[in-house]
Simulated assay, not measured.
Amino acid sequence: PHSIPLAVLGSSLLWLGWFGFNAGSALAASGGVAGNTVIVTHMASSVSALIWAGLSWVRTGKPSVVATINGAIAGLAGITPASGFVSAEHAFVIGIAIGVISYSGVVLFKEKLRIVDTLDVSSVDGVSGIIGSLAIGIFASTMVNPGGVDGLLFGNPDQLWIQAVGVAVAAALGFGGTWILMQIIKHLIGIRVSAEVEDVGLDISEHAESAYSDEEEFMLDMDTYTDELQEKDEIFRKKK
């Protein structure tokens, strides 16, 4: 992020709002489900944040603030599917799993496979969401939510299979649908800009404006974006 304080502020607001998002899904404050949902949401996100902070500290020698807030968001995204069906104790375990696996996913995708994922969405949301969905099949209990189901630990192993099938279908639709849409966009307008435009910056190339025009260190040279550069970029996009 270009501003870590703003990233922390935004993540904090997101964390607070997530309580309403998850607990509000109960559609009522009575019965204990909504209250338990708030607790498990906070538990999993806190544990995941600590896991990310610890793992970043081990790997780099310094605890990372950005890693910590990414871990919190991963925990929020991961616990969401299971938040209305699991206990706080199991949310603690789920938070550990989310933290370790999603952090490892970032390392795998970005450093090993060299996949460009600027916001780490594939791990922070994708991997974490898969963990949370599968967790329902393991930790869900009708003692927590009488309107829900029991998972593997409570005598219903079939629920884990149901969750796995659901994850597979969602992944196929997500990846398949995205690939189709990207192919359409690629052939219509292109999905990459030229190296020259990347160097000048998309603020100027797409909007002819600079986001930091009042700060000298962020000034972008408007004169470098010429009609010739725009024409070259359009040709580049058509080729792609």
Results as ranks from 00 to 15, higher is better:
61 G>H: 06
229 L>Y: 08
217 E>R: 10
87 S>A: 13
98 I>W: 00
85 F>H: 12
116 V>L: 15
74 A>R: 09
57 W>L: 15
49 A>F: 05
54 G>T: 05
200 V>D: 03
89 E>P: 06
179 W>L: 15
181 L>F: 13
229 L>W: 10
127 V>R: 00
83 S>L: 07
228 E>D: 13
24 G>Q: 06
18 W>L: 01
155 G>K: 10
37 T>R: 00
43 M>C: 11
200 V>K: 01
7 A>V: 08
196 E>A: 11
163 Q>T: 08
201 G>F: 02
93 V>W: 09
52 W>M: 08
48 S>V: 07
156 N>R: 13
221 D>S: 11
28 A>P: 04
178 T>M: 13
171 A>P: 07
85 F>I: 10
47 V>S: 02
87 S>C: 09
178 T>S: 15
34 A>D: 05
143 M>P: 04
172 A>E: 05
165 V>H: 09
208 A>Y: 09
208 A>W: 07
108 L>R: 10
1 P>W: 12
17 G>L: 01
42 H>F: 14
5 P>K: 11
187 H>F: 11
51 I>P: 03
118 T>R: 14
155 G>W: 09
102 S>V: 01
81 P>A: 08
94 I>K: 00
103 Y>D: 14
56 S>Q: 08
137 G>Y: 03
118 T>M: 10
61 G>L: 09
133 S>W: 08
132 G>I: 01
188 L>N: 04
194 S>E: 03
54 G>I: 04
123 S>W: 01
206 E>H: 13
156 N>T: 06
13 L>K: 05
115 I>K: 07
216 E>R: 13
38 V>Y: 10
32 G>F: 05
40 V>G: 00
9 L>T: 15
65 V>P: 02
140 A>C: 10
221 D>V: 03
